[in-house]
Nucleic acid binder design. Structure first.
Length: 802
DNA sequence: GTTTAGGGTTAG
């Protein structure tokens, strides 16, 4: 089915020119001129679009040959393709995994990731005007969201980006289907319509000052706008303009999609959406920024998103951000939610008593915690949404009403101090004033803030989860595990936690509430990732985001981009500059020799070699030079000044170790570090450069089993002590990687039966976390447990045990 | 190729 991207057969100019001849992927090498050649393959992996400084991009993809002649090897040949600049941007927008692509105008380089991915010893590099990609897409199924318009026309048949145009709210033609941006001035959370769908209501505005109602009907909750407060910004695609009651309204239509953004200036640019293939470019970000500053100038943003319990007043309506601790049905039209937000209400909170054994979550808490817990009675239509909630969820309840405790409540209310100054809360039936409940994603700023407040609650109010619920059957906590082996059987791990908790079976553990610590005796059934280098991640302690370690192909591309076409550069006054003489090898890309810049201050104290700034070198050269200098900071010229490379590349090389910075949290400025007598290390360099240092961490998912059940658990914060290696060492040396490999092989021998897997004594914590957008789940992590019996170490460290 | 709702407090 023809698309507006450069599809083969979509029209003149879209065809691969006839004079080009195709080369099989398996024959790609460096000794050929590829100017009249093409390579064809299916996109089997499409990396993220990585933005570099000054509006430049890089993207890595893997294509696989589908129709290569049958060969001895069963696997189809595949190759890494690295795209630069506008081509990378267009490719990111126009091409999907599974598309068939033909590349031409490429050069061939050595693949720096070949040792790791074993794909192909060479890669294809596409940059400049000659490079282009022809795309064909397997015909069905048709995509209803096919882009409506194409970007600038170009002679060069490279992929064309689909381009959306956005209508202002004062320029909507009845009957047309439009895309638009707006600031939310009123909203209702999705509620059940009388038809088949959930219905959301929005009212949005923009710089035209028009206010336009918008109704969204979708069956699935996740397809609805994720609007959490007035002032949020939405980007709507494919809404139909209609007139109702002489006013313009918008209604979702086929191919509808929506992104929502925080409306505050300086807020996150991360859009909230369930759409897996949305596109967001520089222009979109600019539009959001413009709407944010306009919103601020108009005073549209509420000063505080919601009212804390500490400020709740009788009879007032307000929105509450809180955590659900427990819930219980009262009758068919009323459910009790027990919630807290870490603040103390100025009025005593009324506790609604319920029947025994109907409470989901603990039925009582420590006295200190009880005094902070509010009773929320939700009625009628909200009973159904309350059914979806789980204890531990973070909620926003809209249009909650504070009721003085003297009011009559269902169930029995605590008698002490009856009637005076006790508060409880009602969520009345209906959706007027946006009344409703929404689960907030765990990563949202508001939830992070809520958690900070809760964590600051004094200790005596904090031990609630260790306060045992008397109604819980005792055997849950005292029965020995139904392990097929006796307690005396050796364990290959050891707990160091010091908790005085009896081991439980996995099925018992699964029935317990989150927030507890458990001891288990289990075997390892399986684990992910199987390719252990993928267990290594980068973690930012500031924004708490985790990311993959960029692979060498991508990093090499960044170095190569940074050193092409060097601009004239003014070096900082404190830097002493010189050149590195290249060793003889001829590079694929002719380039100036790299330049080095030293701190004069360090030179004065004879520490010049301890820190050098290096400009114009390849990744390979930088690694070589890292052997001779303690700290190497790769730099480039941007706008005539010395700056760091894009933060997807390491900002510092120390021997074999590389250090990365957080893109979100760093404010980069190349400065001379202030020196004292101390050793210059990654922390000092990061601080001087305004880089928020990312930490290497290990993250694995283990599937545990015992006689009763299986359980997926994470090994993350406890991973280094579990394996007895540091993640930083794993990133830099093979021995540390082997140690993990051997440990996993010993705990879960390849092809081994359950009988061959050793038993492990582990300490687990259970907690609530968001696993998908808006969906919280109980997760488990291994803590304070150490492998005591790794497999016997073979003399050759690289050979797996078996 | 479009039913549902189309904002504006329950009344416990």
């Amino acid at each position: 089915m023809p698309q507006r991207v450069m599809l083969e057969g979509a029209g003149p100019g879209a065809q691969v020119p006839a004079h080009l001849t195709r080369v099989p992927i398996s024959l790609i090498g460096t000794d050929t001129d590829y100017s009249d050649k093409t390579v064809k393959g299916k996109v089997v992996r499409k990396g993220p679009l990585v933005s570099l400084a000054s509006d430049n991009f890089i993207l890595k993809t893997v294509i696989e040959e589908e129709d290569s002649p049958p060969k001895a090897s069963s696997q189809n040949p595949s190759i890494n393709v690295v795209l630069f600049g506008a081509l990378a941007e267009d490719f990111s927008q126009a091409v999907n995994q599974g598309d068939l692509v033909v590349a031409s105008g490429f050069t061939v380089g050595r693949s720096p990731t070949f040792n790791k991915d074993k794909l192909h010893p060479f890669n294809l590099l596409l940059s400049g005007d000659d490079a282009c990609v022809y795309v064909s897409r397997p015909p069905p199924p048709p995509d209803p969201r096919s882009p409506p318009a194409s970007r600038r026309s170009s002679e060069v048949p490279k992929t064309k980006a689909p381009k959306y145009t956005y209508s202002r709210l004062d320029n909507l033609k009845a009957g047309s289907v439009v895309n638009t941006y707006g600031v939310v001035v009123f909203f209702k959370q999705p509620f059940k319509s009388r038809g088949t769908d959930l219905c959301s209501t929005l009212k949005i505005t923009d710089q035209s000052n028009q206010r336009v109602g918008c109704t969204v009907f979708c069956e699935k909750l996740e397809d609805h706008p994720k609007v959490f407060q007035v002032g949020d910004i939405v980007r709507l695609h494919r809404v139909k303009v209609r007139i109702f009651n002489n006013s313009v309204t918008l209604l979702n239509t086929f191919g509808f999609s929506v992104l929502a953004f925080d409306g505050a200036e300086g807020g996150s640019m991360e859009p909230r959406t369930s759409s897996r293939s949305f596109h967001l470019d520089q222009e979109d970000r600019r539009t959001v920024e413009e709407l944010r500053s306009w919103t601020t100038s108009q005073g549209l943003l509420p000063p505080v998103p919601t009212t804390p319990l500490s400020a709740a007043q009788p009879k007032a309506y307000f929105d509450l951000t809180c955590q659900l601790l427990a819930k219980a049905p009262i009758d068919s039209s009323c459910t009790l939610l027990r919630v807290w937000d870490g603040t103390r209400c100025a009025h005593t909170l009324l506790k609604v008593m319920v029947e025994q054994n109907v409470t989901e979550g603990p039925s009582s808490f420590s006295q200190a915690r009880e005094s902070l817990i509010a009773s929320v009675l939700v009625y009628d239509n909200h009973v159904e949404s309350a059914e979806q909630l789980k204890p531990g969820d973070f909620l926003r309840i809209y249009n909650l009403r504070a009721i003085s405790g003297s009011s009559k409540v269902p169930g029995r209310s605590q008698s002490e101090g009856e009637g005076v100054d006790h508060l409880l809360f009602h969520l009345h039936g209906g959706t007027a004033y946006g009344r409703g409940i929404r689960v907030l994603p765990e990563n949202s700023q508001d939830v992070q803030e809520l958690k900070r407040v809760m964590e600051a609650v004094p200790e005596e109010a904090e031990d609630d989860f260790s306060e045992q619920d008397d109604s819980l059957p005792m055997e849950v906590w005292s029965t020995p595990p139904e392990s097929p082996v006796a307690e005396t059987t050796e364990s290959s791990t050891e707990r160091s936690c010091g908790h005085d908790t009896q081991p439980v079976t996995l099925s018992e553990l699964k029935r317990s509430d989150p927030g507890r610590v458990h001891h288990v005796r289990v075997q390892l059934r399986s684990y992910e990732p199987r390719r252990l280098h993928q267990a290594l991640k980068l973690y930012c302690s500031k924004c708490t985001k985790m990311q993959d370690v960029p692979d060498d192909e991508l990093v090499a591309g960044l170095f190569s981009e940074a050193s092409q076409d060097p601009e004239p550069c003014t070096f900082p006054w404190w830097a002493l500059s010189g050149r590195v003489l290249r060793s003889g090898d001829s590079s694929t890309f002719p380039r100036r020799s790299p330049s080095v810049h030293l701190s004069t201050q360090l030179l004065c104290v004879d520490k010049a070699r301890e820190l050098v700034f290096l400009m114009g070198s390849t990744l390979e050269e930088t690694c070589r030079l890292a052997a001779g200098y303690q700290n190497i900071v790769p730099v480039m010229s941007s706008g005539g000044h010395m700056t760091l490379l894009d933060l997807s590349a390491p900002f510092l090389f120390r021997g074999r170790k590389r250090y990365y910075g957080c893109k979100r949290c760093s404010e980069v400025a190349v400065r001379e570090p202030s020196i004292g007598v101390e050793l210059i290390d990654e922390k000092i360099v990061a601080e001087a450069l305004g880089v928020q240092l990312l930490q290497f961490v290990l993250l694995m998912k283990l599937e545990l089993q015992d006689a009763t059940d299986t359980l997926d658990v994470f090994l993350w914060r406890g991973a280094e002590s579990f394996f007895g290696v540091s993640a930083e060492d794993v990133a830099a040396n093979q021995e540390a990687q082997n140690r993990i490999r051997q440990t996993m092989d010993s705990l879960c021998p390849a092809g081994g039966s359950a009988g061959e897997r050793p038993w492990m004594d582990l300490c687990l914590t259970a907690y609530r976390a968001e696993v998908e957008a808006g969906h919280n789940q109980t997760c488990y992590q291994i803590f304070q447990s150490t492998v005591t019996k790794p497999a016997s170490t073979p003399s050759d460290g690289s050979t797996p045990t078996g």
